[in-house]
Each structure stands twice: as C-alpha cells, then as structure tokens.
C-alpha cells in the first residue's frame, strides 16, 4: 500500500511540475493544485498507514499506539487542505483577473513587469 501511495505522490509531483511549466494560465493553477495534493498525500503516507483503525481510543481501551492511527498527520493534512483551498480560490480569482486585464492566457505575454 505504501508503495502504491508513494507512486501516486510521485506522479502528482511530476504532473504538478509539468503543468506549471506549461504556457497556459489555467494549467498553472492546475499544477499548483496538484502540488498541494501531492504534499498532503505525502504527509499522510509518510507518517505511517494503519488499516481500518480510526484515530480514536475507545473509552476504557488500552493506549496501544500501534493499534490506532496517528491523529496528528490527519490534522495536519486537514489544515493544509483547508489552507490550500483558500489560497487556490484566491489564485483562481487572480488568474481570472489576469485574463481580463492582459487579454490573453499565454504566460509569455505576461512580462510587462520583467526586467
């Protein structure tokens, strides 16, 4: 399972970086979203997978840490997802504005501030 998820994480990174390098605005956003997903999944995978156990210790149950999932990476991934959601929504608004102002979705046209 770890191997499968590792491959998925790797493909997400590769796909994200590839999309960022394209010349179209909206693909840039897709690339950034893929990168964010890749790192979320990586947090989740790298901290160890436990199958079919929630991160809850039943009342009166024993505190055997190998038996329950680690809640912290789940909390981290959740926080990162929420933040990613917010940032991407703003980025999307910005891309839309860019398209209106520049009149093109070609990233090579967007260089009036370059030096």
């Amino acid at each position: 399972m770890i191997l499968l998820l590792a491959i998925v994480v790797g493909s997400l990174y590769a796909g994200g970086l590839y999309m960022i390098m394209r010349r179209v605005l909206i693909k840039l956003i897709i690339g950034l979203a893929l990168l964010a997903h890749a790192s979320n999944l990586l947090i989740f995978t790298a901290s160890g997978l436990i199958r079919g156990r929630a991160a809850l210790v039943p009342a009166g149950g024993s505190l055997d840490f190998r038996q329950v999932a680690d809640p912290l990476p789940q909390a981290l991934a959740l926080t990162a997802i929420v933040i990613g959601f917010g940032v991407l929504a703003f980025a999307l608004a910005l891309v839309q504005r860019t398209y209106q102002v520049v009149g093109s979705d070609d990233l090579d046209q967007i260089r009036s501030t370059d030096t």
């Binding site: 917010g86 608004a93 839309q96 504005r97 209106q100």
Partner: peptide, 14 residues
C-alpha cells in the same frame, strides 16, 4: 463568509 466572498467575487467579475 469566506466561501461566499470568493464565490461572489468570481461570479460578479464574469
């Protein structure tokens, strides 16, 4: 508030 703000902004600029 945040979700609606984003949605309205995107919707109105179109």
């Amino acid at each position: 508030g945040a979700a609606l703000l984003i949605m309205f902004t995107l919707g109105e600029e179109q």
